[in-house]
Design a protein around this nucleic acid. Structure first.
Lengths: 213, 213
DNA sequence: GCAGGTTTGTGAATTAATTAACGTGACTTT
DNA sequence: AAAGTCACGTTAATTAATTCACAAACCTGC
């Protein structure tokens, strides 16, 4: 166990590999090579092997990887062998869409509480879940042992929501509000910034002929 | 005009700076330093200056940057001085949420067509927009001169939707389906993979004490 | 109009990430 | 059972990105 930091990009790719392997497995594929994985997800074969090498030796030389095994290994590395109950704050359109997003369930994530402070939303149902007033967050977090929170509120409220989450012991936050949150060092925070992603497209559209300056 | 490639991370940060500057401007702030921007968005001051340096000299030594000017510069660099009509394919919950997402409009993006092949969705309204059958995509794309497409369909359909977009001349695609799309080199493609983002959180939750291996 | 305090812009140094290259082990074939 | 092939794991080389550090430029006050 060397003391080497795993690049974030590696973790991201691992998640992609994992899902690709899941699909191979469903199609009955038994063995796969780094080259085939690379081809399937759009990276280089060396990259695939390097990424996996951070965590162990999972393949057989001259053969490749057992799909089912590698799938399990990658999922374990990502912590997907555990249960991850989550809370969602914000029951607007985005919060609603995310709360019912199949992709989360498919990977074992479960939203156990949706919260809002808008009286017209509280009490409504999002599938089988009630929309609770924000005051109920502590109770639900405690009850389910939640450590992941998702923020889907308008930008001006995101910071206070994040602080409330931290105050209630959440350790990881996925923030969809388009602002930079200021939180303690030990909180794991990642942003999903939809406009930013689009603006990367427009930038490249403008400079596609010459991505150079 | 040196021939230096601009890192993707720089473009991403530029978008974040731009929005931060917008907020400063709304609050009446006239001048800002690289340090203040850095503080506000969570990067280092040197990073801010370096990022801007790819595109020119926008500041005044000993003083800082004029907020309004730098905001305009950054938006121009990102292509936000132009109109970007977009089409959305997929009128499920996510497609619906994204089609009505305020954050896009706030940055000048407009969705001019929403498409689906589900008969129960076609003809319905998403705010002022009709949901069209997918066959109508070519017409709308041509009519509005669209070059950006958003994919919000289930994974199994994403590849064919992407190919349809490419066939109709779209040049940039933002893909929300959790699959790796295979498209021609010249198409600008970015993925927003919601599960992947969550799995980066769970990975870090598992190895927070020792992010090292 | 000069001194002192600021903050930019930038080349150099550092750190990080990716790609290349190759030795090693495993399976296959004859 | 030996030779050939294949694909992994790993070290080295390369490329990329970030941070450092400092000269140059600007403003303020006296």
């Amino acid at each position: 166990m060397k003391t080497v930091k795993v690049p974030e990009a590696t973790v991201t790719r691992l998640s992609v590999y994992s899902r690709f392997l899941e699909r191979l497995d469903q199609n009955g594929v038994v063995t796969v090579s780094s080259g085939e994985i690379a081809e399937g997800v759009g990276v280089s074969p060396a990259q695939v092997r390097k990424d996996l090498a951070y965590f162990g030796e999972f393949g057989t030389r001259g053969v490749g990887y057992n799909v089912k095994d590698l799938m399990r290994y990658t999922m374990n590395i990502l912590g997907l062998d555990k249960k991850w109950p989550m809370v969602m704050v914000g029951a607007g359109k985005l919060g609603y869409a995310l709360s019912t997003y199949r992709g989360f369930n498919d990977r074992g994530f479960t939203i156990v509480g949706v919260f809002d402070n808008d009286l017209t939303k509280i009490g409504k149902k999002i599938e089988h879940l009630d929309v609770h007033p924000i005051e109920k967050l502590p109770e639900i977090v405690k009850k389910h042992g939640v450590c992941i929170g998702i923020i889907a509120v308008p930008a001006p409220f995101a910071q206070e929501v994040a602080e409330l989450m931290v105050a209630n012991g959440l350790q990881a936050i996925l923030n969809f509000a388009p602002v930079s949150l200021n939180l303690p060092e030990n909180i794991i925070l990642r942003n999903v910034d939809l406009s930013v992603r689009l603006e990367v497209l427009t930038f490249n559209l403008c400079y596609r002929s010459s991505t150079t300056f």
